[in-house]
Simulated assay, not measured.
Amino acid sequence: MNEERERGSTLFEKRCENSMPAGLSGRAAVPSAVMKRAYEEKLKLCDALEKIADALPNVDRLKCLGTANAIVPLLRNIHQYEETIIFPAYEAATGGGNANLASIRRLRAEHVEDECFAGEVTEILLAIGHGEAVGNAEAVGFMLRGFFESMRRHIAFEREHVLPAIGIIDQG
């Protein structure tokens, strides 16, 4: 599991490095650029999941495998960055008021829920990608939609409330 987290971390950091101006990378990167890239990656993942859900039961098995392999490492790395860089900056910027601390606790809890849900989505997509028949396309579609809509809401909340409080404007 740690190896998977490290691999995801490396993938995200490399993607961030590739999108950064010269001299900026990884944890030293400007948080606004890192978060912009993180949201782009998460929204690409949401779009891929939506396309899979729309195509059920006749899906591209390779697309399922590729998406399945990206979900957990990507989310874990983005969540780690948010929890170590973004959330402490938000707490400091807002003075740690009760409402703001409650929001951060909720966002951290959502991270745990998202990672658990991501594991379930990954299992389904891997099974489909390896040739298992889609038994109940409606249920699988509902599961995928629940997952990516939750991620989109999480991103929207952070864009509207967390990032502006720490001086990052991300219009999306």
Rank of each mutant, 00 (worst) to 15 (best):
N2Y: 11
N2D: 12
N2F: 13
E4T: 12
R5S: 05
R5I: 15
S9R: 13
S9V: 04
T10V: 14
F12T: 09
C16M: 13
A22L: 11
S25W: 01
R27F: 12
A28N: 13
A33N: 15
V34G: 10
K36A: 11
L45V: 10
C46G: 02
A48R: 09
V59R: 01
C64L: 06
C64D: 00
P73M: 15
L74E: 13
L74Y: 15
H79E: 03
Q80K: 06
Y81P: 00
T84D: 11
F87H: 07
P88W: 04
P88M: 04
A89M: 01
A89P: 11
A93P: 03
A93C: 01
G97H: 07
G97S: 06
N98C: 10
L101T: 01
H111C: 00
D114N: 00
E115W: 02
C116Q: 15
F117A: 11
E120T: 15
T122R: 14
E123A: 14
I124T: 11
L125M: 10
L125C: 12
E132W: 05
A137G: 09
G141T: 09
M143D: 10
L144R: 01
L144A: 00
G146T: 03
M151G: 14
R153G: 13
A156C: 09
F157W: 13
E158A: 07
E158M: 02
R159Y: 08
E160T: 12
E160F: 10
P164D: 00
I168S: 05
D170I: 13
D170K: 08
Q171K: 10
